[in-house]
């Protein structure tokens, strides 16, 4: 469904005079393959490059090198006349800012319909159908985002992303701004929709507990590169990379069973090490050996 091949992207670092003084390697040789109907998790902290990957898949950034293929076809190849937006859509992290505050829900959901030439006369009915799909009453089309709760806003964003029936959906931390009980309902909705419509998900998150339960395949990103990938059970059950182990050990959990699952990380001066410290420790140990 989606294939990334040796994807690289660097951002120039400029000094106060706008002169390039260096480069930040945001994405470093990332390759992965997502099968149709799969739920693929991309875990990482801020600065790991997970958002840059999402933005490149969406065409908001151009990769320096490497390829992005959807159904075996490069996203820059438009020869079949199918717009990029019909193949892949995205649900943004913060539903508060991904919906235009001055436009009604109906207007927002109709944006992709408008953009992809959906007949004007059938639009209200389509908007109602889409809202129904995300379990919102049709009357919500008349409302403004500030009249909705966070969970309702995210449902609207999902309806909007599904308006032109893409097969692939990029979910960029879709529930990190929501309450935990709302999060569970949104995840239920995404799961149901995925089954009904045969969707493929690329799920980007820093919430490992959520990822463990939602994604089937997982890749862990650290500083632009994939340090570990595998099935959700393998990566979480038997993490092999130090960074993955630290990430899992850092998750606040609510039960003893979960706590027992967390790897034990050696403390440095009575404190948990940073990822850099931990990786430096390992490298030093490797040199010793």
């Amino acid at each position: 469904m989606l294939e990334l091949k040796n994807l690289c992207k660097a951002f120039p670092i400029r000094n106060a005079f706008g002169r390039k003084t260096g480069a930040l390697q945001a994405v470093d040789n990332v390759s992965m393959t997502i099968a149709p109907g799969d739920i693929y998790g991309l875990a990482g902290e801020s600065g790991s490059g997970k958002s840059t990957i999402a933005r490149m898949i969406m065409g908001l950034e151009t990769p320096d090198s490497g390829e992005i293929l959807i159904d075996g076809r490069s996203i820059h190849d438009r020869s079949d006349g199918v717009a990029h937006g019909r193949r892949v859509q995205m649900v943004f992290q913060n539903p508060g800012s991904s919906l235009n505050p001055r436009r009604t829900v109906g207007q927002s959901v109709a944006v992709p319909l408008d953009a992809h030439g959906f007949p004007r006369s059938k639009r209200p009915a389509r908007v109602a159908t889409l809202l129904d799909m995300v379990q919102l009453p049709a009357a919500f089309a008349e409302r403004y985002p500030h009249e909705l709760s966070g969970g309702q806003k995210q449902r609207v964003a999902i309806a909007r992303a599904l308006a032109v029936e893409p097969k692939l959906l990029v979910l960029d931390e879709p529930t990190s701004a929501l309450d935990v009980s709302v999060q569970a309902k949104v995840m239920d909705l995404l799961t149901d929709l995925g089954r009904q419509m045969g969707l493929t998900y690329l799920f980007i998150s820093h919430d490992l507990s959520l990822m463990r339960n939602f994604a089937r395949e997982v890749s862990v990103l650290y500083r632009g590169g994939i340090v570990e990938s595998g099935t959700s059970d393998t990566v979480f059950g038997h993490p092999s990379h130090d960074y993955t182990r630290l990430l899992i050990a850092s998750v606040p959990v609510i039960s003893a069973e979960e706590a027992a699952l967390r790897p034990v990380i050696p403390l440095i001066d009575g404190e948990l090490p940073t990822p850099e410290q931990l990786i430096a420790l390992r490298q030093a140990a490797d040199r010793q050996a």
Partner: peptide, 10 residues
């Protein structure tokens, strides 16, 4: 969601 997994969404 639990770190131990086993939760089925949907």
């Amino acid at each position: 969601p639990r770190l131990t997994g086993g939760r089925r969404f949907g």
